[in-house]
């Protein structure tokens, strides 16, 4: 990788100041996506700003009907946190399937959200649960956060500080892994919550998206059979050496059915 200056601020304000000072600067938390990209010299950052020393980004708490998870919370913590397991077990189960043990021991919620890899798991969950992404300067509903492949509503110097997940009545997740990378080939998160039934899809398209026909079908009848007949159109889905858009479209239905079964 190219060399860079390393900074480890201890406050959000200092971190934002560093990121604002240079458009080439990159924030790092777990580094599970950034470091492989840097190793392949896909980026040439001037500064790398390590967020791990910022206490304000830590912690899991219940706020009313929401579980608020600090951006630095690692996948393993989400998978095993008693409050999350009690309130949104599907989110914990989903976190327990991200990457591998070593990724889960390092990777963070905030990093995954801000990176918005099409094959990442959390964006589908955030969409389905109707999460709110809290940043250093505002709150962004999930529906307005994920804009496209590796693109979010974040300003270049804006940091995710936490994600607030409304506790659903029911939620479930199912995915199929890419045989090589083991990222999600297609994953579907379904939830029945305060804002109704929502279905989030990852892996299949260039960006996680909501499947509204499935939401309607599940609103009418919350059962695996209800989504089994809803077909996803393959247009605009990913097609690569591991599977065609048609294949991924079909997986959306299969995984939706399984996710509903998982939710119970």
């Amino acid at each position: 990788m190219y060399d860079f200056e390393y900074h480890k601020p201890s406050s959000i304000a200092d971190a934002v100041k560093l990121l604002a000072a240079d458009p080439e600067a990159k924030a790092i938390s777990g580094g599970m996506t950034l470091l492989p990209a840097l190793k392949h010299r896909l980026n040439k950052p001037s500064y790398v700003v390590d967020l791990s020393g910022i206490a304000e980004l830590q912690g899991v708490r219940k706020e009313g009907g929401n579980i608020v998870i600090g951006a630095l919370t690692r996948h393993y913590e989400i998978a095993t946190h008693p409050q999350i397991l009690a309130a949104i077990p599907a989110l914990a189960r989903m976190a327990s399937t991200i990457g591998d043990t070593q990724v889960r021991n390092r990777g963070t919620l905030g990093g995954s959200m801000a990176n918005n890899d099409p094959a990442a798991d959390y964006p589908a969950a955030a969409l389905a649960l109707g999460a709110t992404i809290i940043t250093d300067r505002r709150s962004i509903p999930a529906d307005a956060f994920f804009l496209g492949m590796f693109t979010t509503a974040l300003e270049p110097d804006e940091l995710v500080t936490a994600v607030s997940f409304p506790v659903p009545e029911k939620a479930g997740y199912a995915k199929m892994r890419n045989p090589a990378s083991r990222y999600s080939m297609t994953g579907v998160f379904v939830a029945k919550g305060p804002s109704g039934v929502r279905v989030g899809v990852n892996g299949a398209g260039p960006c996680a998206f909501r499947q509204q026909e499935m939401e309607a079908a599940l609103t009418a009848n919350w059962s695996p059979d209800a989504v089994a007949k809803v077909k996803q159109a393959p247009d605009e889905l990913n097609s690569d050496i591991h599977g065609s858009a048609e294949y991924r479209a079909s997986l959306v239905t299969v995984m939706a059915r399984r996710a509903v079964a998982d939710a119970g």
Partner: peptide, 27 residues
Amino acid sequence: CDTSQCGACVVHMGGDSVKACTILAVQ
């Protein structure tokens, strides 16, 4: 490997397994 997949570099950091190829020394 150079894509954080093979696990030949796994060590423990604070007792947890991590991939030493995907952590900066300064971290």
